[in-house]
Nucleic acid binder design. Structure first.
Lengths: 138, 138
DNA sequence: TATTAAAAAGCAACAATGTTGCAAAATCTT
DNA sequence: AAGATTTTGCAACATTGTTGCTTTTTAATA
């Protein structure tokens, strides 16, 4: 499968625009997750704030990126693996936030564990966020 | 152990004030978690917005409540169990967000599972948030 | 390649959320 | 009850997120 930036956009029937290319490249250029603020800092001099919001929203809808829940009110976004379809994410991996460097990783190889929920509860999705020291900081 | 509202505050060496009593009672009166917005709606006519912020912050610092990460940028707070000490939380339970009624539960009996992390990663805390249909909505 | 319809970006204005400093009021200590 | 301390409320501000509309860019088609 082609993995160029333009290919990713076209595959998701998105028109190729400068801001989408730029923002998508930010994700491809590094392994961690990005908070909205990070993206705005890196791309915001060039693009309007609103465009960043709308682009991220579009990417989430198309399944190109996914959100990672945090406890500090700053949604983080990370690239999805290829098997994410529009409106149907398959992010069954664990996220890791380093308390030292503050980088968020997608641990693609660590699968979210099974949970035994109390009677009456049915879960459709489980998010696991581990916090600690990453391999670069230890 | 005494569980009156005043007792909880005194035990944590907090002075007993109207707003703290009111906000703490909101948590005691119901089982789910509360978002800042909920609290402001319920207590905000009586108290200043800033007071709500500061009170919640104080409660978190004292270990009376804890935060629950979400993917929608609205921090939720829930009461801690009694073994939370100041600055040292013991929230090894799973959280459950109902996608229908939007209530967040602390599943105190569901312990966060062990995770096998990749080499080099050490985690100090693991957050698990399950999403689905709760016992009241099914 | 030029024309045109559709989509996206930029702009402005606004709404919501969160923060800070300081004076007034309430609480705690003795 | 009086004074020291803590908390509250207020005002002003910063940040973050949203909406409507016009201009610009992209993509489709001749």
């Amino acid at each position: 499968m082609a993995t160029g930036i333009k290919d990713i956009l076209k595959r998701n029937s998105l028109s190729v625009t400068e801001s989408r290319e730029k923002i998508l490249s930010l994700f491809l250029d590094q392994s961690g997750a990005l908070a909205h603020g990070d993206i705005e800092k890196k791309a915001g001099e060039k693009f309007d704030r609103v465009t960043v919001y709308r682009t991220l929203q579009t990417f989430v809808e198309k399944g190109i990126i996914h959100t990672i829940p945090t406890a500090d009110n700053s949604i983080r976004y990370a690239l999805c693996k290829d098997d994410c379809k529009e409106g149907h994410h398959h992010d069954h991996h664990v996220h890791f936030v380093c308390t030292q460097c503050n980088v968020t990783y997608c641990l693609d190889d660590v699968v979210t564990p099974e949970l035994k929920l109390p009677k009456g509860y049915t879960s459709s999705h489980i998010e696991v966020v581990a916090e600690g020291i990453c391999k670069n900081c230890k």
